[in-house]
Design a protein around this nucleic acid. Sequence first.
DNA 1: TATTTTGTTCAGTATTGACTAAACTATTTG
DNA 2: CAAATAGTTTAGTCAATACTGAACAAAATA
Lengths: 152, 152
Amino acid sequence: MPEELLHFVEEFALAYEGAGLPRSAGRILGWLMVCDPPEQNAAQLAQVLGASKASISTMTRLLVQMHLIERVPRRGSRQAYFRIRPGTWSERVRQGLAGLSLYKNLAEKGLKLLEKAPPAQRQRLEEMRDLYAFFEEELQGLFERYQRRKGA
Amino acid sequence: MPEELLHFVEEFALAYEGAGLPRSAGRILGWLMVCDPPEQNAAQLAQVLGASKASISTMTRLLVQMHLIERVPRRGSRQAYFRIRPGTWSERVRQGLAGLSLYKNLAEKGLKLLEKAPPAQRQRLEEMRDLYAFFEEELQGLFERYQRRKGA
DNA sequence: TATTTTGTTCAGTATTGACTAAACTATTTG
DNA sequence: CAAATAGTTTAGTCAATACTGAACAAAATA
């Protein structure tokens, strides 16, 4: 299979490593984004990506748990086929959103601790909370708008 | 200083570890979010957080490079004082934004490779590109709106 | 200038985590 | 039921990196 595609897959994996994915999980994800046919079984993944069965098994499980890929059952066969889950990219945005509220909550927890502190001391946390609250709120709206637009 | 605050700092560090910061850098950041006074020198940080001078030196450098904290010069003293950089949280959002275009570009690069592939094969990358393009665009606007709102 | 204070750099340690080979389990097919 | 096939789990290896103590450098103070 084309050399260029594998290079792309590597770049893809590198990019998502920055987002916290193990390199080899990123490679699986990247390959599943471009491969033909879009469903691939474990053996194929191992062969193309030059990884061990064990790694494929672990990493596909991870990716399934993250709702980024899904197992496609094949009737009459126990083989596991995997493919990019439709809506994967929305899912990532949604996960990002969840991250925002984590940080917002963190700021609020801090503010509770500093309840009796002078405003000057609280100000840093307030800025943090306000910003995350704003983006959480607005992104929620944006997200819905995107979904709706895609429906049309 | 209060036990509870240190626990908060730990939680803070843990949260930002998920975002790729070393634990001890997260602790510094967390402490600088709540400490009084808001400027702290290296020795104070080392003492409160129970870290070595070496670690403080390395991690403050990292945080300064990331534009999350800044050195505050004290005239007549060589001591380095650090504080949360005003606008730190906007900065983090801006960095997140930059991340989005990275992914969008990635999708576009892939599409170029699949230029001659049938639409069915291109579709996954197209969805990815569209989504990131949408959010990059819209977040840009949101961001400006936030800045303006804060100015008022 | 000598001493003390402050911070950085370096070398080494310890921990984490990605990855593999091999053993194991389960399922399908002969 | 036996043999082959597919996948998971486990134990162990290797590499990356966070962190420390100690040596070092630079600057302030005596």
